[in-house]
Design a protein around this nucleic acid. Sequence first.
DNA 1: CTTTAGGCCTGACGGC
DNA 2: TGCCGTCAGGCCTAAA
Length: 313
Amino acid sequence: MPELPEVECLARAVREETHGCRFTGVNFLRPDLREPMPIDAIRSALVGANLRSVRRRSKYLLIETDRGTAILHLGMSGQLLSMDSPDPVKPHTHVIFELRRKDSSAAPQNDGLTQNDGLTQNDGLAQDAGLAQNDGGNPKYLHFVDPRRFGRLTAVPAGTDLSAHPWLSELGPEPLEITADALAEHLWRKSRGRKAAVKPFIMDGAVVVGVGNIYASESLYLAGIRPGRAAGRVTRQEYRILANAIQTVLGAAIEAGGTSFRDYLHSDGSEGSYALQLNVYGRSGEACRKCLSPVRETRHLNRATYFCGTCQK
DNA sequence: CTTTAGGCCTGACGGC
DNA sequence: TGCCGTCAGGCCTAAA
């Protein structure tokens, strides 16, 4: 399941894969994911436009062209796969983006790609794939696959203030783009008076982004802080340690190429091995790597939480 | 204001 | 063997 490190790796890989490209089509195989997709707005922002940048904000992928920006979230089960095929290869393929090199001379505006019912399956892209052979361009296809459909996709026109977008406006700071001290002070200040447990507190995207369920348990373990402690009773000094732990865990996961997204580009969609050595997550009953006590499992807001009752106070 | 429950969705998995 | 309940979890809304 993609968390911040996976989305960061995805952003980097897509950036490299699509450098110097322009969008020549977007095919919608269904009209909705989590919510209905604004199909016309997405096509307006992408089709016929040159790619400018691929960035990440929180767990959102921001794909910017000179006409607008697509905002994409993979949800729980989403993948963005680079394929040669203009047609769906895997089940639950919902959106297919077509890109070509900028110097390709193909006419970009094929009406087969701008059909607006959003439901016709294959003919649009198949027609355009035929054009690709004429101009010698090598079209690339990014397949948005998402079995559980917790993902989301929208787009805004160029010039829109992204930080004011409803999906992004309430988000806390990026934990890796501020110093550990700044992050610690931020967490400490935001947590004053909060009775909620520190684990759901650091998972709250309005507090700080990118600390998902796995990395929340891992960070608290590294910091030696019990996940069930009230956030408001964690000390300033402990938040300094926790801030460092969050950065360490997220940084190491990115460094390792994410956990399961290393091979996202492979058309077979095979998963990479978990590069991050998990200390507690999913290890209920197994020995703590430090003290050999059995790792304990609890729940916070119906989410599995793992910790060592001996190492974490 | 903060906090929590429930819904979304489908594949995997365990129990019977 | 196959059916069924439960779980997974980011993000939203409603409601306490």
